[in-house]
Simulated assay, not measured.
Amino acid sequence: MAELVTILIDGLTYASWLFIVALGLTLVFGVLKILNIAHGSFYALGAYGAATMVAWFASMQFAPWLSLVAMLLAAVAIAAIVAPLTERGLLRFFYGRDEVLLVLTTNALFLIMEDLTKLIWGANPYFVSEPYALFGNVDIGVQSYVGYDFMLVGLAVTVGLAVWWGLNRTRQGKIVLAVIHSPEVAASMGVNVSRVYMVAFSIGIFLAALGGAFTAPMISVQPGVSVGVIILSFAVVIIGGLGSIEGAAIGALIVGMARSVAVHTAPVAELFAIYLVMAVVLMFRPEGLFQRIQARKI
């Protein structure tokens, strides 16, 4: 029984940060129709930015709980700086062109950003230990778990509900949904489609950076961390259905639980278990579990 509880908690913790990152990926696809290969790089920038901000806050001898604010500010800063440069300076020139060209463009951006992070932060790993100890330990049965993991689950739920509410219960969200369904009709009704693209892309980058920032205390932040994240994020959105918030949540839970079961029962099959689940889902639901919009073929 104790092992089952451990598997469930580990799977839920893993799914929580993965959902935040995948939510940004599926939002960008839903609005801009872009399969953003560089999404993992924004996650890495969030992790590196959080490591830098937390270290600076610690050097200034601020209260330890402010390290959480530092990580949030890092994600906001990454989105505020990188989003305009990427969307206005690069992607907007490729709207309406062949989808393969967009994939190649974001892949090139991914390679550039990988080298850029090495130039800025070097090749040595960074460790963000301060926030991880803020929530103490939680005892469940005979096992003790880190409280930070449960905070991360709460953050994922909060982010998911906030994005859902923003899209479905606000005027701005209705405008975004209109652009998703038909940019041409939305533009004819006076909607500034270019601005909607910019805002949606900024939120997508923020979510990726937020996932990276709040995952940084749990991992070693080092070059290459973005590669595994983008693969897992694509697995999540493919399982759940491109462009679906509900699909991203269910997909993240499936991937998280599959990985947790594999890690605790057959560690060598960790990645195999994820790809196996994805293959089984696509066999019966090629469009994903919660596909809402027709994915463009590449």
Rank of each mutant, 00 (worst) to 15 (best):
I203W: 03
W164E: 05
F201K: 13
G190E: 07
I180P: 04
S194W: 04
F206K: 11
G228I: 08
F214L: 13
G247C: 01
L210C: 12
V191G: 07
L207H: 02
T170S: 13
R169Y: 10
W165V: 00
G166N: 05
V185I: 15
K174F: 14
G204M: 01
V196K: 12
S194Q: 05
S226I: 11
M189W: 04
G228S: 10
S188T: 14
A208M: 00
L242R: 05
I205K: 03
V176W: 09
G211T: 11
M218H: 14
I231G: 09
T170F: 07
A209R: 09
V236W: 05
I230M: 08
G241N: 13
I239D: 00
R195W: 15
M189T: 13
I231Y: 08
A248K: 03
I205R: 03
S244P: 09
L242N: 01
Q222L: 15
S233T: 14
N168P: 03
M189H: 07
E184N: 12
V221L: 06
P223A: 12
S182N: 15
V199Q: 09
A200L: 02
M198Y: 13
V221M: 02
L207A: 04
E184G: 05
A178D: 00
E246T: 12
T170A: 07
P223C: 13
Q172H: 14
A216V: 10
Y197C: 01
L210I: 11
S202Q: 06
A248G: 02
G247Q: 02
G243P: 03
F201D: 11
M189P: 02
V179S: 08
N192A: 14
S233V: 12
P217N: 08
H181A: 15
S220E: 08
V227M: 10
I175C: 04
G204E: 03
G228K: 05
N192C: 05
N192T: 07
E184H: 13
G243V: 12
L207D: 02
S194Y: 03
G240S: 05
F214I: 09
G190K: 11
Q172N: 09
P217T: 11
P183H: 06
G243S: 07
I219Q: 10
I180R: 15
F234Q: 00
Q222I: 14
G241L: 11
I230E: 03
G204V: 01
S194N: 07
I219G: 04
A248L: 01
W165Y: 13
N168C: 06
V185H: 04
A208N: 00
F206S: 10
A187S: 15
M189K: 14
A209I: 11
S220R: 11
L167R: 06
V221K: 03
L232G: 11
I203M: 13
L207R: 03
V227E: 09
S233L: 04
I175A: 11
A208W: 00
G228C: 06
V193E: 05
V229P: 02
V179R: 09
A213Q: 07
Q222S: 14
V193R: 07
S194L: 02
G228L: 07
F206T: 09
I180V: 15
M198W: 10
I245W: 02
A178R: 01
I205A: 10
L210S: 12
I238R: 00
A187C: 09
G173C: 08
I180D: 02
G212P: 06
V225E: 08
V193F: 10
F214N: 11
V191P: 04
S244M: 04
V221I: 06
N168V: 03
P217C: 06
G190P: 07
